[in-house]
Computed example of a mutant assay.
Amino acid sequence: MENIILTSINLHSLELIIQKSVTAAMALSMPEKTLKEPDQTFSIPELAEYLKVTKATIHAYKKRGIFKYYQTGRTVFFKKSEVDAALAIGKKKG
């Protein structure tokens, strides 16, 4: 860290120096990505397009419990990370 000699400095300049020092110290001590990005969600038609299958196939998968789903009123949606995980498990099984 550099040494700064404060002889005649105005309040604004002092605030900037402190702010830069605190910001630099925090950047060193905190991980780069502390906020988690939200997971992408699919509706039934979007998931059908993503997987290149029909909507009826998605309904069948939902009914059989292959994909975990969430429902708000009549709206059904799927999380991309959970769909990808289910597909990975399916590939491992055969």
Rank of each mutant, 00 (worst) to 15 (best):
L47N: 00
A27E: 11
T57I: 10
A25G: 09
I58L: 01
F42Q: 00
H59T: 12
A48T: 02
I9M: 10
E82V: 07
F77V: 11
E82K: 08
L35W: 03
K80W: 04
K79R: 10
A56K: 13
M1P: 09
K68H: 06
Y61R: 13
P45L: 00
S81A: 07
H59Q: 13
A60G: 11
Y50Q: 04
A48M: 03
K91P: 09
K91H: 14
M26P: 01
G90N: 15
T7W: 11
K33H: 03
F67A: 02
Q40I: 02
K62G: 07
T41W: 02
K52N: 14
F67Q: 00
K68L: 08
L14R: 05
M26Q: 08
N10P: 04
P45W: 01
K62F: 06
T75Y: 15
M30N: 07
I9G: 04
T72H: 12
V53H: 10
V83K: 03
T23E: 12
Q40E: 06
K52R: 14
I18F: 10
L11I: 13
T57V: 14
I5L: 12
N10E: 09
L87H: 09
E46D: 06
E15K: 14
T75D: 15
K79Q: 07
T54V: 02
D84C: 15
K62V: 05
G65M: 03
I58E: 00
G65Q: 03
H59V: 13
I17S: 10
I66F: 13
P38G: 02
I44K: 03
P31A: 00
F67G: 00
S29C: 08
Q19E: 14
N3E: 11
S21E: 13
R74C: 14
S29G: 05
K79S: 01
F42H: 00
Y50W: 07
L14Q: 05
S8N: 10
S81C: 07
V53E: 06
